[in-house]
Amino acid sequence: MRAAAVRAVNERAVRGALAEVADPEIPVVSIVDLGLVEEVDVAADAIRVVLLPTFVGCPALELIRSAVETRLGDFHRRLDVRFEYRVPWTSDRITDAGRRKLRAAGFAPPGAVVLGAPVRVQLGAPQPCPHCGSVRTVLESAFGPTQCRAIYHCTACRQPFEAFKPV
C-alpha cells in the first residue's frame, strides 16, 4: 500500500499527487505545471477536482481525467473529477517550473497573452530557440502536431522547434 493511502488526506497531499500526473501529449510536464488544476476540495468522504481544458477540442481530456482518477484512487475517497470553463485556461497559467521543463525538452514556452493584439504579431515575434538560445528564429506554421503547438525554425542552429501557442 502506498504511503499516501494511510496518511491523512488533505489538499496538500492531493495536489502533490496531481503533480505526478503527466500531460499525455507533452509528458515532461505535469497537469500542475500546465496550470490545469483550478480547484481541489477535500471533504470527509470525497475529493473534488476541477480541471481546465487547454483547448475545447483537446482529445486528451478523457485520458487526463482517467489518469487523475487512477492516481487519486490511492486516497480511497469518492472522486469527482470534472472539466469546467468558468475560468478560461490560458497559457499564462503555465508555471515557472513548467516553463523550465518545456525549454529543457526542446519546446519554447509561450509568451504572455495579449488578447487585443493581432495574434500574427504575437506569434510572429521571434521566440528564443530552446536548443541554442538564439532569437534568429522564424515562424514556420501557426499549426503544429497538436492544437496547442506552433512550429518555428532557428536560422542560427538550423533546427526546427515547437513552441507552445499563447492562448
Binding site: P53, V56, E84, W89, L115, V167
Partner: peptide
C-alpha cells in the same frame, strides 16, 4: 463561460 474559451481559439 464556454464563449470565453472559444474566442481565444478562434483568434487563430
Amino acid at each position: 463561460d464556454l464563449v470565453g474559451k472559444l474566442v481565444r481559439e478562434e483568434r487563430y
